[in-house]
Structure formats: structure tokens, C-alpha cells
Design a protein around this nucleic acid. Sequence first.
DNA 1: CGCGATTTGTGCACGCCTTCACAAGCGCCT
DNA 2: AGGCGCTTGTGAAGGCGTGCACAAATCGCG
Lengths: 250, 250
Amino acid sequence: MSQQRHGSTPGHRPGDGAAQAFPELPEATIARLPEYLRALHNLGEAGADTVSSEGLAAAAGVNSAKLRKDLSHLGSYGTRGVGYDVTLLIEQIEYVLGLDQRRAVCLVGLGNLGHALAGYDGFASRGFKIVALFDADESKVGERIHGLPVRHISDLGRVAVEEKIAIGVISTPPGAAQAVADVLVDAGVTSILNFAPCVLSVPANVDVRKVDLAIELQILSFHEHRKASLTALPGGRSAATAGNQEAVGS
Amino acid sequence: MSQQRHGSTPGHRPGDGAAQAFPELPEATIARLPEYLRALHNLGEAGADTVSSEGLAAAAGVNSAKLRKDLSHLGSYGTRGVGYDVTLLIEQIEYVLGLDQRRAVCLVGLGNLGHALAGYDGFASRGFKIVALFDADESKVGERIHGLPVRHISDLGRVAVEEKIAIGVISTPPGAAQAVADVLVDAGVTSILNFAPCVLSVPANVDVRKVDLAIELQILSFHEHRKASLTALPGGRSAATAGNQEAVGS
DNA sequence: CGCGATTTGTGCACGCCTTCACAAGCGCCT
DNA sequence: AGGCGCTTGTGAAGGCGTGCACAAATCGCG
């Protein structure tokens, strides 16, 4: 994650209505906005017009104070004594996240995981459209996956430029990932989602987010290990009184 | 993510040599240990006996000071003037993460994503073994995926207990996820990896980690939006001094 | 019209994490 | 044996994020 500083740029004149100057948001807040957005969509479909910070926080699984502070960074879109207008807030968050502009996504590497990603409903339903698939394996080229043909990776650079690809998803084996990233960067792609378990080296203006499924399991393993070593002690019978019980919509 | 506090439990007597009492590690450190581990395995296979904090940091994509502080929490396993013994450090990290004990994993929900997860090499290669697959769809029950039969979800509770499942992976649609989590918890599972885009409510002693692929894209989308709005301004040429340029092995 | 109930927005303090900078320790070379 | 270069481990400082607690603002009702 390229840690570039945010600071400076006070900007954000609240007076002038349109949120034009780009708000300077804490990274932690950004990471939570999509969660708020999902919760808002659920609430909206359930017929809610407004929602309190308490209610939205519960639906998103966070503390209400944190939620209010997060939203306050976007501007004042709530009404005291009432709550937040669901539709308005959805629009604002989608605007800030840039979801009002459709961004073209390409997917490189159609192994097990890539195959699943190509058909993952969650992408399309959140406004991301995968417009091209690539693989190095000639035998896969031409195959259609969920309606899209697989192209050879040698076409990646050309197609990425033609289709104005903004985001590249890498689900190749780790050995191939850096080469793919280089091609993407050369083609002007400035955001990469990397599923390959390796470190990518990219210019500073390119954002890389990494998802490593095995790492998640290892973190859970650590906590299992920790818990096991605790229950081995006489204390035992962990409290388990459960604190964070929230109603989940559905 | 069940925010349970880690504080308390002073423990960790440094005097007694063997790292027996469980070390109290910062959460941020834990999240990086798997990355260090992967880098160490790569270095080891490349024939390195020792590695400096600088070298390992580069391979793991982090700052060397951070790496040293992280490792110092495990104890003193480096040699000044020389570096860290690769094999020894691998052993230590694997011990701390509890990877020396094989943990049984089950996977619930065999849609697109679940199918891919069932065959994901990364799990097996990191020592995690998926021992059972479940789905609610009768037509999928009995099908063999990567050698494992799909069982009906009604068997989940019983099998989870029998097989001593430690970690449950949920890749169902969001509407079904909470019910699955409840069954897992009842069966004694204390770690859950949730791929469903929803908030899970679990007792305090259960750890939940969430992976939402669409959220990652939305975060990237935000940065695309930000970058676009910057280049539109005359100031342009974002500083982009950043820092994290590291050579990647491979 | 005024008052109370409700909820937002935020100042503040605290704790975690990161980063710098350097002392302490180790091995090698002379 | 002694000195020198290299690397670890860590004290201290600064920044970021979280959560509390409350003032400000809005609505509804009498």
C-alpha cells in the first residue's frame, strides 16, 4: 500500500454546496466507507428513509462515534435529531469513492482463483465491470468464461490502453505477477489488486492492494494458538459473554 | 473483527529461556509475520543461510526498522553484525503463529468463490488442510471437488465436532452467512474467515476475519478518483516521492 | 412559541504504531 | 589482542486512530 502522505490541502469549503475540492480523508476512514455503503444499500432496500448513526454503525459493525467521525470528514450530511438521509448519504459516499464513474477492470491469470473472480457477482453488483481476461496459457486462450473470451497475455498492453483499463487484478502464480504488473503499469494502469502471494514493485503513483488468503488463515491460526495456550491454564472457561451482538439485516 | 481487548495477562517471563509463556504481540505485528515467513521461505530456497533486517525487509515489502521491532517482540533471534538465521527464524515464526500444529479447516458455500477456495494451492502449501466441504444445495451434495466430497450443510455441526474443525471459511451468499456462523460457533469453531459481504455477529471469544473483494476494488476506485482529480488541477505532478520501492526476489 | 427529547458533529485525551537515531554486540582482519 | 565495520535491538518522539463526552442543532408537541 503506497503510504503517501495526506496532509495539507485544507480545502473543502462547506459553504459552497457542491463537494468540489477533494476531501482529504484518513485512510482508515476510506477503508470503512464501502462497508457503510453496503449497509446503507441494505437499509434502503428495507425501506428506511433515514438512519441514525447508531443504527448505521450497528449495520456496518462499527462504533457509532467512529462512524460519525468518518462521515463528518465527508461534510455535514446528517440532520441533528433525525439522522442521515439514506439516499443522500449513498450518493455522497459513491461520489467520494468515485463509484459514479464506471471503471474498467481487467483480470490476469485464470487459474482456480481467477476463474472464480471472473464470475464473482460482487464485482458487477458494486459497479465494477470486468472487460477483459488474460492468461499466459495458450490452451486457455479463446475459452469464454462468463461470457468473456480469454485473451493471450501478449495482448494485455495493447488492450489495456484501448479499453482504458483503470484497475488490473492479478491472480497469477507469484512468479508471473511482477511481469504482469510491469505490463499493466506500462499500459497506464494505476491501480492493482494483487492476489499473488508476493511483493510487487511499482512506481509511487500506482496503488497496489494485496489480498493474501493464506495470510488471513495464518492470522487466525495465531489467535487459535493464543486461545489454546490460555485455555490450557487453570483460568479456563473463557467468559464468552459476547459483547458485540448486533442485528444483521438480511 | 471482534475487537476483543488484548491487554491484561502480563505473563511472558523473559528470564526463563524457552519462549513458553505466550508472547504478547501487537496486532499489527501479527499481521505482518506471515509475510515475513513467506519471504524467509523464498530466501531459504534461494540458498540463503542468514539474512539482514534490510534484506528481509526488502523481500517482505516493509521498512527495516519496523521489521526489527516486529522480530524483537518474538525475542532475540538475530546476531549483531551478521543478521538472522533463516531456518531458526522460520521455526520461531511458525511456532508463534501456531503453524506447527495442523489445523483442520472447513469450507461452507461452494459457489464460484468457494469452488476456487477449495482448490486453492496457497492453503495447502501453508499447512492448512481443508477437511470438509458443505453446501445447502442438494444438487451439489456428493459432488467431489478436488478430491473432497461436498456434504449437506445439515451435517456441518456434527462433522465440525467430529473432525475437530478449528477454522471455518464462509463463502456463502450474505443472507446465509450468519446462520452458518451460528452453526460453526455452536460446533466449537472459534475462528472464522468470512468472504460473504455482511457483518457477522459472534461471541466475543470467536475471531472473525473478513475478506471482501468488492471493498478492495472500491478502495482502489477512491484512489483513482483522487488521482484523477489531482491531475486535473494545474498543480498536477503529484509529489509521488513515496518510499516503498523494493526489489522483489523472484 | 417554548421546551424537551433526540441526534449530530467535534474537542480532547489516550494508546497504538511507526520511524529515527544510536548504543550495544558480534565477527573479521591485521 | 585490538580495532573496525556491520547489524541488531531499543529508547524516544511524533503521528494517526479511537472513543468519550458534550455542546450545538433540529424536530415534535403541548
